[in-house]
Structures are given as C-alpha cells and as structure tokens.
C-alpha cells in the first residue's frame, strides 16, 4: 500500500497539533523506520497514516485515495487492509492467545463467523503458524494474563502476521524484548513483509536495530521530519541533531 501525507498537521489535541506541516511519501512495499526522541510525534504519525486519527490539516492518501473524504463505510474497508500494532500490546487479559490473535481477521470474518469463532476457534493452523514464527507456538491456548511481557508483545505482533493487511504500522515493537530476541523478531517481521509485499512503517527507540534492518530511516523531531535517509548516511551528526547532545553515541556502532 502506498502512503502520501501532504501538508499534515495532527495530534490528539486538535488545538495543539504535534505534527506540523509534514510531507511524506512511502511507496508500496517499502520498509521505513521512524526514530526520534520521546514525544517527537512518532506514534501520532503512525496513527494518522493508519486512519486512526484524523489530521487537523492536510491529507492522508492511501493508494491515492483520500482517507478522510471517503464515506465512513469505505474508510472501514480501508482500515481492514491495514494493521496498527500499538506499543502496549492491546490484548484483553482474560482472553486466550488463540482468540486474541484471530481477532486480526475480524474484518474479513464477518459477524456470524466471528461469533462462532469465540466458541470453536477457526484457522487454528494459521494461528499456530504465526505464533511459531515468533517462537510462542506453545502459548496457543494459554490465557493472555499468564504470559510474560515479552511473550505478550510477540503474541500481539503475531496478529500482524495473521492479518491480511497490506500496510503495517508498528509502534516500538521491541520495547519489551531483550536485544537478541528483538533482532530475531524484527528479522521475521521484515522478511515476511518483504515476501508478501507489505508496506511497513515502524517506530523504534533502538537506533541500531532500525539502521540494521531498514533501508530507509526517518528522523522525526518536534513534529517535523528532520532527515529522511538511507541508513548508511545516518551518522553521528544526524543522530546528535535528532536526539540532542546527551546521547551516548558510542553505543550505536
């Protein structure tokens, strides 16, 4: 899916938008990482691109269609073709893993099938496969609140693997994972996305992971795109400008 953001201002509080006059084009199948300090507008950017937050100004176009002038029913169909993975795994504590992951297909399931699936879960094989790719296959029938933080995050990301979405908007997918696990998870996500031609826009605090796995790096600071570069061109100077002088650059490379 192709994303075009033009003259975009947006934020949860319409009176004080976090993003201001932002322009961004992402081609179909591209994989883009967003890095930047906390509060820079990374999450807002993902939400706006995913039609979860209406812009105060400017337009959001997905495959050329303006997401906010279309009818609300049509917008719902577009939402069904994308997936937003929030930073905190949005899983109800008492739900079973299988149901939580299956929820990724609700829009395609239809009402009666989703109702029946509450009692006898469908597509067990596909769910198990998605979980296996992230090394949590043994948790299939476990309850969400019995999982560790890292397992919960991986279950939440398994939703992306199961959903038929053409665009993944992933907010800090690695926040609860240890470094080696984080690399493994991001390896799986990017390679599956590449194989399916899914467009990926993901935000990171781990600059090294972003630089290692993504061909295009977006530095966002104070609601503006500070740089939009290939990873090999993101050096200490760019990072210092992005995070301020207090970052320990020695950790990065």
């Amino acid at each position: 899916m192709r994303i075009e953001l033009n003259g975009l201002s947006a934020g949860p509080d319409a009176a004080r938008p976090i993003l201001t006059n932002l322009n961004l084009q992402i081609g179909s199948g591209e994989q883009v990482a967003i890095i930047g300090p906390s509060g820079a507008g990374k999450t807002t950017l993902l939400h706006v691109a995913g039609l979860a937050l209406a812009p105060v100004q400017g337009t959001v176009r997905l495959d050329g269609e303006d997401g906010w002038t279309m009818r609300s029913g049509t917008r719902r169909q577009w939402r069904a073709r994308l997936l937003i993975a929030p930073q905190a795994p949005p899983l109800p504590p008492r739900q079973r893993v299988v149901t939580a992951v299956l929820a990724a297909r609700l829009a395609q399931m239809g009402f009666w099938r989703s109702l029946a699936s509450l009692i006898a879960p469908r597509d067990l094989e596909a769910v198990a496969q998605a979980l296996a790719q992230l090394d949590v296959a043994d948790k299939l029938f476990e309850r969400v609140d019995r999982l560790s933080g890292g397992e919960r995050q991986r279950v939440s990301l398994a939703r992306a693997l199961l959903s038929p979405a053409r665009l993944w908007l992933i907010d800090e997918p690695l926040s609860a994972l240890d470094p080696s696990r984080a690399r493994q998870v991001i390896e799986v996500l990017t390679s599956v996305a590449r194989a399916r031609g899914v467009t990926v826009l993901a935000s990171f605090h781990q600059v090294d992971v972003a630089l290692a796995f993504f061909p295009r790096i977006l530095g966002v600071r104070a609601g503006k795109v500070l740089f939009d570069l290939a990873p090999e061109r993101v050096g200490p100077a760019e990072l210092r400008a992005l995070y301020g002088n207090d970052i320990a650059l020695g950790d990065l490379k």
Binding site: G50, L51, R79, L83, I84, P90, P92, A103, A107, S114
Partner: peptide, 18 residues
Amino acid sequence: LLHQGAGRVQGFLYGLLP
C-alpha cells in the same frame, strides 16, 4: 480492533467482553 476495521459488535465480543 476498531482501528483494523472490525465492527461494533465484533469489537465488543473480542475486545470488551473478555
């Protein structure tokens, strides 16, 4: 769930009810 195109009742059954 609503953000990925689920309906109102589906959102209720899979997000709120549990």
